[in-house]
Design a protein around this nucleic acid. Structure first.
Length: 594
RNA sequence: GCCCUCCUAGUUCAACGGAUAGAACAAAAGUUUCCUAAACUUUAGAUCCAAGUUCGAUUCUUGGGGGGGGUACCA
């Protein structure tokens, strides 16, 4: 995680090793020198021992000597075990900084005609109930990865597959028909998705009652579940839906429309957007052709009852069903078809990122393996962006037990919490009520997003709403606050930013910050697709923290030197840019003033 | 049962196989002539256990313990 010092020192070290040991090594490992040692950057000599059998300290000494004599940036060196600590000149850092400072959108590659295209699938809700906290992690992760890919010069299509058909939506439809015929989002004052979700819950609870009374009549649990009138009605409805029954289809369309309108509100509040949509109702029949071809090529096999399977035991996995005995498709069939369709429709498509929870790790392993067996060459650029569950301090989220956290409720709570905290601090008298509402939203949602993104995607999250909105510590509001301070600083500084004098004498803390910015290519981290949002988020926090330390130190010193002041302003501006730009990657908005 | 995954201070999280394992919150103490104290400076505190691989292991391998997830006609 440091600047690519190879660019600067590669030739010198390489030439030396060639001359003396006849080995050709072209990349070296550098890291920032730990602050308890003297020096700025450190060359790791250990890895070289594989090629050169020599005492590491001796080798480090030799390389240090060569660099000191031949490279003007190196002003000194010392050796600790296999670590070669190099001191670099102020000039070097200043030049680095200046070259970076001139760039706009540092770390962002420009999209061109030749840029590859990738698809990022995320969100992918069911249309029978509103989005919940788990969806928020999904959306924030998927959207963030899409932005990171874009910064890498990749043309990204953000998409989702909407599970808009099936028994789950029929349950809501049955309940709505039976218990709430005239209720609409307009006359009930409920968001469309909330309304449909309400009837899903009504279905489940009425269904449970029916089961219980059947059990009381002497049926077994299994029998009761199967013969409950509501369930039979829902299954009938599904059949009618598949037969294209006009009435059912129009009811289905009406209720789905409500749900989409509700989802759109949620997405808008959350700040995510999509470029295309796939609907299960249009994709669920896909994939059967693939199955047929697979059977012909002996990749799949048919059982006596007519069901189709793939045997993956050679790859350490089980056998997997691909078509039911009645010839209908399963989830896997559909996903095979959808993947193929996407590559057919979008000839320039290079790969797909699937943002789906880790409970489906196995599914995607199998999906990718089957596609590979079928011989599609794009299989290797399919990636399952898997992420852990979100737990609450109060316990686990279980949708069946009604302990889920609704996405809309959570966002509102976060905004209210932000309001509460802001009002406690006061200092907001100068803002209009409209500005205030906007501010609360920015802070509340920034807190939520950062809290989720700062954690390694593969780990489970323990989400604590109160802790997330703390204005101190590793939180979104802290970074936003730092950004706002920098903006104020820049605004209040009338001094123009001029060329720097290389004779500048720097205080230790300033040097640290220059190093931070000198190693600004660390910001490339933001633009490297192999890094997760979590790494970026934590890096961002370090940056904000460094700025605070820097700021405090300067204030205490009371430095008034004019050159230093200009320099400081320039640095601050760069930090501000870094923060606001990377905030964008995280899906933050940052206020101009607070 | 089998497969996948996670386990680091009291708590929530960091650490390309690199130096004395970093932060934050909570705890204890201190700092206000200052571009906002929504800050800063101290102090105390951790790698689940056991082997192996090597110059070096929180990281890789194997075994064990604990949590979570998956497991053949649900998505």
């Amino acid at each position: 995680m440091s600047m690519n010092y190879n660019i600067h020192f590669n030739n010198h070290i390489n030439g030396f090793l060639k001359d003396k040991f006849q080995v050709d090594i072209d990349t070296f490992e550098f890291q920032n020198t730990r602050k308890e040692f003297l020096g700025d950057i450190t060359l790791l000599v250990f890895p070289l021992l594989k090629y050169i059998k020599i005492n590491p300290e001796k080798l480090a000494e030799d390389i240090g000597e060569i660099l000191l004599n031949s490279h003007k940036a190196v002003t000194g060196y010392n050796v600790v075990k296999g670590f070669l600590n190099l001191s670099l000149s102020d000039t070097f850092y200043l030049e680095q900084f200046q070259s970076i400072y001139k760039l706009k959108n540092y770390g962002h590659k420009i999209l061109t005609e030749e840029s590859p295209t990738m698809m990022v699938e995320f969100s992918s809700p069911n249309t029978n109930k509103p989005l919940h906290l788990g969806h928020i992690r999904n959306n924030v992760l998927g959207y963030s990865v899409a932005r990171i890919l874009e910064a890498n010069g990749i043309h990204v299509i953000k998409t989702q597959i909407i599970n808009d058909r099936g028994i789950h939506i029929c349950k809501s439809m049955v309940a709505w028909k039976k218990y709430g015929k005239n209720e609409t989002p307009e006359n009930s004052n409920l968001k469309g998705d909330q309304l449909v979700g309400k009837y899903y819950i009504i279905f489940e609870s009425e269904y449970k009652k029916e089961i219980q009374s059947l059990i009381d009549d002497g049926l077994t649990q299994e029998e009761a579940k199967r013969s409950a009138p509501l369930m039979i009605e829902a299954q009938n409805m599904l059949r009618l839906w598949e037969d294209n029954d006009h009435e059912i289809r129009s009811l289905w369309e009406k209720m789905n429309k409500w749900v989409y309108s509700g989802f759109n509100t949620t997405y808008k509040n959350l700040g995510v957007t999509f470029d295309s949509y796939y609907y299960e109702s249009r994709t669920y029949l896909l994939g059967k052709k693939i199955i047929k071809k697979g059977i012909e090529n002996n990749i799949f096999y048919k059982k006596k009852d007519g069901s189709v399977w793939v045997d993956l035991s050679d790859d350490g996995l089980d056998q997997k069903i691909l078509l039911r005995s009645d010839g209908t498709s399963v989830y896997m069939t559909q996903d095979l078809g959808t993947a193929l369709k996407r590559f057919e429709e979008e000839p320039s498509l290079k790969g797909i990122v699937y943002t789906v929870g880790n409970e489906q790790d196995y599914h995607f392993k199998v999906l990718f393996l089957i596609l590979k067996k079928l011989g599609f060459d794009w299989t290797k650029s399919l990636y399952h962006l898997s992420y852990g569950m979100v737990d609450l301090p109060s316990g686990k989220m279980k949708s069946r037990e009604g302990t889920v956290v609704d996405a809309d409720d959570l966002m509102n709570d976060m905004i209210n919490q932000a309001k509460h905290v802001c009002q406690e601090y006061g200092k907001l008298d100068s803002l209009s009520s409209e500005e205030l509402e906007n501010l609360y939203q920015i802070i509340g949602l920034g807190a939520l997003k950062y809290f989720i993104l700062k954690i390694d995607p593969k780990k489970n999250i323990l989400f604590d709403p109160i802790a997330s909105i703390d204005f101190n510590g590793n939180t979104g509001p802290f970074i936003q606050y730092t950004h706002a301070r920098i903006k104020t600083l820049i605004k209040s500084s009338s001094a123009p930013i001029r060329e720097f004098k290389t004779t500048l004498i720097l205080e230790p803390k300033e040097r640290e910050l220059i190093k931070l910015l000198g190693s600004y290519p660390e910001f490339v981290i933001l633009a490297r697709e192999e890094y997760s949002p979590a790494i970026i988020a934590n890096y961002l926090y370090d940056l904000a923290k460094s700025y605070n330390a820097f700021y405090q130190n300067i204030s205490v010193l009371g430095v008034e030197d004019i050159e230093l002041r200009n320099f400081r302003v320039a640095l601050s501006q760069k930090v501000a840019e870094v923060i606001s730009s990377s905030s964008g990657l995280l899906g933050f908005k940052v206020p101009d003033r607070m």
